[in-house]
Structures are given as C-alpha cells and as structure tokens.
Design a protein around this nucleic acid. Structure first.
Lengths: 222, 222
DNA sequence: GATTGTGAAGAGCTTCACAGCT
DNA sequence: AGCTGTGAAGCTCTTCACAATC
C-alpha cells in the first residue's frame, strides 16, 4: 500500500529540480505536454540515463520515443517528495530573513503554510507582520500543539539557533529548516536542512577560484 | 608557488562547515586552541578519517595526539576556499530577499562586499537601501566595470532570472549566486550556485516523510 | 527516428584499519 | 592513551551501451 521506494539522497535533491521544470512547463503550456530525460538531465546536470533511474525509483514511467507526460510526472514527483499533504510550519525569528520568508509566495504555492511567527521578544512580539501577530517564545509548545505544525523554520541569530532548535524538538516538531549559519545537533529522528548564505557564497568563491585559468585545465568547456 | 591542490567537490562543501566551527571556536576562545578530526567530523556528518583527508587535500597538517591548531586551520581553510582575497559582488533585485541579503552581516565578515544594488526599475531605482542607491539595470556593465565586481547575486523573480544572468555574464561577471527558483543556463566557465528556499523545504519534507516510522527502519538512530 | 528501461562497467567518495607520532 | 596520516577495501552514485518500445 504505502510502500515507499528507496530513493537515494542525491536523487531526491534532483527531484526538486525536475519538479520545478515540470511546473514551469505546465504553466507555460504553450508547448508540448511531454519532457524527455535528456531535457531534465540538463537542468540537473546529469546524464539522461540518470534521470530515467531517478524517475524509475519512485515508479514514474515514460513512453519510449516520446518522453514523460508532464502531468503524470508532476503528480508523481510531488508524491515522491512528500508534498501530497500540506505542511504546516512555525517560523522562529522575525528579523530580515524571517520577513523575507513570510513574503515569499512560493512557499504557499508548494503547499507549505507558515502558521505562526515567534520571536524572542525584543520589541517585535505583538507586532503584526504579513498578517501574523508575532508571538513570544513562551507560547511555542502551545502554538505548535494548536496549529498542528510539523516543521520549524529557524531564522534567528546563530547563537540562539541551537536553543531554539531544541525547543522546537521538545515541542514535537518533526523537521527543521535552519537559516542560521551554525550546525545544529539534534536527534537523528529529526531531520535538519540548512540554508546557509555564507556557505553558498563560499562555494561560489571556491568554484570561481578553481575554474580560473592557470589553476588546472585551461579551457575544457567551450 | 600558486599550486592548487585538487579538492573534491563534496570536500569543498565541508570545508565551509569546518571553517564555521573553527571561527566559532576562535571567537569563544575560552577553551582549547585545537580541534580534533572527530569533532569536525560530527559537524559535517562524516567520519574522522574523511576529515583528515579533506584537510590534507589542501595541505593542512595536524599534530598526532593533539589535533589541528585553530589558527592554522582557519588560515588554511580560508585560502583553500579562495577567501584570501576580498570578493566584490553586485546584487540584482531589491525585493525582500535582496534587502535581507543587504542586511546580512555575515557577508562582510567573510570578506564579501556588495558594491552595488540594481533593479529593473519599478519605483525602486533611485531609492536608498542600506546605504546603497538602487541603480537601473541599464547601468549594469558600467557599474561592474567601475567597481571591479567579480560576482553577481540574483534576487529577482524567476521569470527574469535567466535574462539577468546573461546580462551579468556579458558584463564580465565570473560567478553567479542565484536565489531565484529557476535553473540558469550559462557557459561552463561561469559557475552558478543556487540557493533555493523551496528546494530546501522540499528536501525537508522528503526527509521527514522518509524517516517516518512505517516507511523503513523503525528506530535505528536513538 | 527518437526515447525509455536496465544490466554492466566505471568513477568517486567514504570508511576501515593500523602504523607512526606526541 | 590519544590522535594523525594513509593504503586498501567497500559502497554508492553515475555513465555506458543496447535491446525494447512507440
């Protein structure tokens, strides 16, 4: 019934990229209603065979000579990623990043709803931001219990991140999205995904430096 | 002289995590001035031997029985990541995400300077944000030439992202940090690093769903 | 003709295990 | 005793190659 195929982690990451492309294609809908594994592979930077394996991993099938049907793929990808159900999240931290997240329309489109905003209290508590009254951290477990939120989003300064994470876990949160540039130590049963701007910039600096002429192959691409 | 060791990509990603921990330790500086490979491994989620290989890949050495010296490691990591030199970046897009980035103190701390802010023009051009007067996209190449910026940060709506990226490349940018949830197609010589909030949430949803009891191993961690 | 599905080969990263240093 | 450095083994992901399908 609810058998869940084993999907390798690198594959799961690519599924998001496939999903994005499929969504974009559907919205355009001027063109074909199929995609080939080669097109999807270009988006994710892998070979077409890899895409076919990724898609097969959760049971999606294509038509030889034609490709994959956009709508079937859309449904399959969303189910494989666990997006069939809506997700509710509490946001902790009403600073700049928190506000940007509240204003990010894509979350709602994907089925993620921010049901509450909390902050430590430095003058923000009680204020209204994007339709949410910012609540005190003292209310955390009650807010989570009443809203039924399963996810927590951490957008506080790094020094507070670990404490907030532990409070979230204690309150029954099942997964954490961490925007603070600090590694969190949580039980393995609570997955953490980190979004670290600095790390991203560092990766970019590394790749730019590494791809600089004189540091390796000279002109391999084209 | 400027020999650059070959550093595997997964290793490079971990170097950022090591760097963050080393920085934190140095700032605390109440404790020891050494780190062991095991401690670093916990942060990155890999075995200690892997850490030692990562560090050896750019020439860092530790002391048997003691560990790695924080300050040496700090210097080595920054050099390996290409952070010895300061980086200059132009930010395109003065919306919510762009503003949050401008207010993000960590960038400057790491040696990244946002030298200019540009936007398509919908009323924001000419306004002052965080000390920057928002400029029109028409000025892009001039701004880049005069500032000597090497990196571009894209924080515009998805539909505009590809065009902005191409304009950046044409103006001589050498690397792109992309916050728009859209895959960019650029010459291989210009690395792109994507920060995609939606993808992160999807990864979280996937992992939470996958780690749910009844979908695989029941309680392996503990 | 174009594209999928998949076994087999290949590449790369990770862990193991242990000698050697402090 | 504790930790590093590293060859060898192990594992996972990726690509190759090609028969099967539309």
């Amino acid at each position: 019934m609810s058998e869940r195929a084993r999907i390798p982690k690198p594959a799961a990451r690519r599924l998001s990229l496939y999903l994005r492309m499929v969504q974009d294609r559907i919205e355009q809908d001027g063109a074909a209603d199929r995609v080939s594994s080669r097109e999807l592979g270009e988006v994710a930077g892998v070979a077409d065979a890899q895409v076919r394996k990724d898609l097969a991993s959760f049971g999606a099938g294509g038509q030889p000579g034609v490709g994959y049907r956009l709508h079937d793929l859309h449904r399959g990808l969303r189910q494989a990623l666990g997006l069939q159900q809506p997700w509710r999240a509490v946001l902790v931290g009403a600073g700049n990043i928190g506000r940007a997240l509240l204003a990010y329309p894509r979350f709602a489109q994907e089925g993620f709803e921010i049901v509450a905003v909390l902050d430590r209290g430095g003058g923000v508590v009680g204020r209204r931001i994007a339709g949410h009254v910012v609540q005190s951290m003292a209310n955390l477990s009650e807010v989570i219990r009443r809203s039924g939120a399963q996810l927590g989003v951490i957008a506080v300064p790094p020094d507070e991140a670990q404490a907030v994470a532990e409070a979230l876990v204690e309150a029954g949160i099942r997964g954490v999205l961490n925007f603070a540039p600090r590694a969190l130590r949580l039980p393995k049963s609570v997955p953490v995904v980190a979004v670290d701007f600095t790390e991203a910039l560092e990766r970019l600096a590394f790749e730019v430096t590494a791809s600089r002429p004189g540091s390796g192959r000279s002109r391999s691409g084209g």
